[in-house]
């Protein structure tokens, strides 16, 4: 059965605290941090972008899979912060992996869920026999407009899932998507920063799609929350996924392992995939995982996964687990943050 053959996550080293951003704008950092459920966010350095994140995560995924990169038949990079408006990130990632030239590659965009859309595309191509392996990457250096609510949460990171049929560490038993036209968050052509619809981003956007996708998957697979050992939801902040889990009937302990946003911020296309990577770091054979991504615009992809015995074999997990890797960090102040994120006009 089609499943995950290798996975990798990458989070940049620098962090800026929510309290530090609030200090600059004369706001109450404690209250904002509490409200968002975020303490600090990961910041890409001057020489990093969604392409460099994608390469780092993909190299880890391919290494853990132990495959020849030339066997990758499709590579999709999901991002809403592409370094080029026109020129695929996917070709640069493919070249850096040594996967060129016999493959198809493309960039996908669906706000925060383009990475999981790539997983579904790879599943279809692998299942049909078109390709042996497909690599789906979610990677973002999310930007928030200075003094906007998003500035406190928009972080950076990348994650890659190698999809195949052989030696899978987790089988993907089922997937279901729920999609509507919902204008909760957008960025127009040539606009530097995205805009959002404030509170409108919760009920008719995040919760409607995440809950509907999860319930749709439960119906189609005849499962319920108690059948799952872990659940990972898209995590635009630290609060939404907790509320989604509670509404569906998941105990909090089942989502703690995959809830990374409080420590690194919202990594957009990478968020649910980094959460899943953290769960795969500890999951035992036979355990079941629910993953529900969410992308504004809007839609959710839900997946049911079953971990296999392969995961316990030497080298199938990255050397450093996600929760350990994010401990390697350096704090910067707001001035350094706007320098590295090129928010100063002359940069």
């Amino acid at each position: 059965m089609v499943g995950i053959v290798g996975y990798g996550a990458y989070v940049p080293r620098m962090r800026v605290k929510v309290a530090e951003i609030a200090r600059v704008w004369g706001k109450d950092g404690g209250r904002i941090g509490e409200g968002l459920g975020i303490n600090e966010k990961a910041v890409a350095s001057f020489d990093e972008d969604s392409c460099t994140f994608a390469v780092e995560a993909s190299r880890t995924a391919v290494k853990c899979a132990g495959i020849n990169p030339q066997e990758i038949g499709a590579l999709f990079v999901g991002s809403e912060s592409k370094p080029y408006a026109v020129k695929p990130t996917a070709t640069m990632v493919a070249e850096a992996l040594g996967a060129t030239p016999n493959l198809t590659a493309a960039d996908l965009e669906f706000a925060c869920k383009a990475g999981t859309a790539g997983v579904q595309a790879c599943m279809g191509m692998v299942s049909s026999g078109m390709i042996k392996y497909g690599l789906a990457v979610g990677s973002d250096t999310a930007q928030g407009r200075p003094n906007d609510a998003l500035e406190y949460s928009a972080g950076g990171g990348g994650a890659a899932l190698l999809i195949g049929k052989e030696k899978t560490i987790a089988e993907i038993d089922a997937t279901y998507s729920f999609t509507t036209d919902t204008p909760d968050f957008w960025r127009r052509q040539h606009a530097e920063f995205p805009r959002h619809a404030g509170r409108f981003t919760a009920e008719p956007a995040y919760f409607k799609h995440v809950l509907s996708a999860a319930k749709g998957l439960f119906e189609r697979t005849g499962t319920e929350p108690k059948d799952y050992d872990y659940a990972v939801f898209h995590q635009p902040n630290g609060k939404f996924p907790l509320r989604a889990a509670k509404t569906l009937g998941f105990e909090e302990k089942k989502i703690k392992q995959g809830l990374i946003t409080p420590f690194i911020g919202n990594t957009y296309s990478a968020a649910a995939m980094i959460g899943l990577s953290s769960v795969l770091d500890v999951a035992k054979p036979g355990q079941k995982i629910l993953v529900v991504s969410y992308g504004s615009g809007a839609g959710s992809d839900a997946f049911k996964l079953t971990v296999t015995n392969e995961i316990e074999k030497t080298g199938r997990r990255p050397c450093v687990p996600v929760l350990k890797a994010i401990e390697d960090k350096t704090y910067i102040d707001y001035s350094a943050y706007i320098k590295h994120r090129r928010k100063i006009k002359s940069l």
Binding site: D47, T52, P83, Y84
Partner: peptide, 20 residues
């Protein structure tokens, strides 16, 4: 080795990626 941006040709030019 890690993968980073090395230099770029201004705002509109090509970005050179590579090892650091």
């Amino acid at each position: 080795m890690c993968f980073r941006r090395v230099f770029e040709e201004g705002d509109e030019g090509i970005i050179a990626y590579g090892f650091k």
